[in-house]
Design a binder for these strands. Structure first.
Lengths: 343, 343
DNA sequence: TTGTAGGCGTTATCAG
DNA sequence: CTGATAACGCCTACAA
């Protein structure tokens, strides 16, 4: 009934616990017959090694911590999915915590995960990257290697701190350029959460795109937002209130874009006829809106995978470097040529 | 540099490690001054107890395992969010794994989590509930209490197995009744994943609703699906292909309904004019579709919270019982009276 | 009130 | 190749 341990097996096999331990981990110095015998016995008894006990002695828990702003955000969910898959393929588990977009909760969550001695920490869309420098913990006794920290969608210089990012500036620039080629001259931008780094980068990309395409900067066309569905209605009001209103909007992410689509439909603003809309992320839902959303793809699952791969590399003592993945414009239906105003 | 342990503190405070241990956990039998002194010292040194070491001796890791089909499903994400919040409030962490809807992977994932000695296991939308009977592991040495298993959105009889469910039959019945009152007589149903229990229950509720409202069963109106966005286009084709086509459809979940909405828009089928659509779950996005989706609310976050609360109760030796939460019809725009056919 | 000793399940370092 | 033995960091009788 009670879980079978290595000593139970040892007793039954008439060997010492250490022999069992070796047999189970395919240690070289053990006779093949013994090994086979013990492995078979272990299987028969349904033996499962205690990760906790193992973790105590080895200093590795075969576990990565993941802290994210909110799983409910499809972008986050996709990254998490990729990370989970990669982790499991390598025999790792994922200890998960949420910050609800609060920097304080984020750090708290990270501390808790570190208390559980995760072998690495992955933070998706960190709101407090600067704080991690001090927080470096979890030294491996033997190698002296810290638990690596991987920032997804953010960046911070520091020992043992890595990042997996998307080329936000490039993506945003490409979107603006696309709109310009479609014929738009008044292009608005709905910004993302104030604290986030990707917000700043996408805004920068938008601005670069505006300038590069020979358009004058128009501060009144940059609206604040939070990267949520709820941004939509509010943003639409603001957009329509501007003198010489925009004919196109690029949104911080798909969620805001979808919110905007809904608000536009409600207000009788035709998309893309009267207003072109572009999102960012290419979440699965963006292909199922009406009209289907034109957006900038971000390789979400790949970012999750890369994050755990980075952790793994660091733990193996291999070289590791920050990763920047490219986005790609996905043309669908929500952006089109600006329509001539009927006088 | 290396993490400070209880003996480091003991040395500095000129006391024994056990005294430190007691001071840190507010043990009654210790002098207040010592306790204060030690706690202060611990704080100053930045001491953090090793959950791993503690777990090894106490048999409790302050961790619950969660295995879900796919975080990318908004329903799952919401449940997970509720669970995470409740867990953290109680000082627990969540070890997370995904099954990708595969029964085999689900059980594997559960085993892995159990290897990490989670104090309880929460399975969201299990596809293999029968398998858990055998799998009962993780006996607490002192109390002899097994790690409880909580099935969210499923059910299975067994010692230490509990469930948190939604009244799927009731919810589906209510939706059908609503459609009937709107005037519909030909009401279709797009089913969910074949293996899932909620699929069966919602289908049953649909059938009950059909009968209770004086409509004859029409097997040709029950379509298969998987609870995904991709169900939409396919289902629409099937729907339109039926002789005497339905004027309303109830979908297994919001995802399928949203897919259907998109397909309908593409095909020029007006909703709700030509076809009324009702979903299930009330995911955040359902309020932002065009038209906004009428759906059956499921208290997702509450289900997650209840799941960890159940685990906690069992661990405390308190009484625990299965939980059934009620749904509620959320009337929005995607369902309306059937429109008269223009000859 | 405090210290001592034993142990949780494994791995790792020694001798044999 | 195998078997004692000592950790890993913490908790908890039991003894003082």
């Amino acid at each position: 009934m009670s879980p079978v341990s290595i000593v139970d097996i040892a007793r039954l096999a008439h060997v010492s616990p250490s022999t069992v331990s070796r047999a189970l981990q395919d240690h070289p110095r053990i006779s093949p017959e013994r090994r086979a015998e013990i492995q078979m016995l272990a299987e028969r008894l349904g033996y499962r090694p205690s990760q906790v006990a193992r973790g105590l002695v080895t200093g590795r828990t075969r576990t990565f911590g993941v802290v994210a702003t909110d799983v409910t955000d499809p972008f986050v969910a996709e990254v998490l999915k990729g990370a989970e898959a990669a982790a499991r393929e390598s025999g790792y588990g994922l200890l998960f915590a949420m910050s609800n977009r609060s920097p304080v909760l984020e750090i708290e969550a990270a501390e808790v995960l570190l208390d559980h001695q995760v072998d690495g920490l992955i933070v998706i869309s960190s709101r407090a990257p600067e704080q991690y420098g001090v927080l470096a913990r979890g030294v491996d006794r033997e190698t002296g290697v810290l638990a690596p920290l991987v920032l997804v969608n953010n960046e911070h210089a520091g020992a043992n701190i890595f990042s997996v990012r998307n080329d936000n500036e490039g993506g945003a620039r490409e979107a603006v350029t696309y709109l310009r080629h479609l014929g738009h001259r008044r292009i608005a931008f709905i910004a993302g959460p104030a604290g986030g780094r990707s917000s700043g980068e996408r805004l920068a990309g938008y601005r670069q795109g505006i300038l590069a395409n020979g358009l004058g900067p128009a501060p009144e066309l940059v609206l604040s937002g939070a990267g949520l569905l709820e941004d939509g209605p509010c943003a639409l009001d603001a957009l329509l209130g501007v003198a010489d209103p925009p004919t196109a909007v690029m949104c911080y992410n798909d969620l805001a874009a979808i919110g905007l689509l809904a608000a536009a439909a409600r207000a009788g603003v035709r998309v893309p006829g009267a207003l072109s809309v572009i999102g960012y992320d290419n979440i699965p839902l963006s292909a199922y809106t009406v009209p289907a959303l034109t957006t900038v793809e971000q390789p979400k699952a790949a970012m999750g995978r890369e994050a755990v791969t980075l952790c793994l590399r660091v733990l193996c003592g291999e070289s590791a470097a920050n990763i920047v993945l490219q986005g790609q414009l996905i043309v669908r239906e929500s952006a089109g040529p600006p329509q001539l105003k009927r006088s």
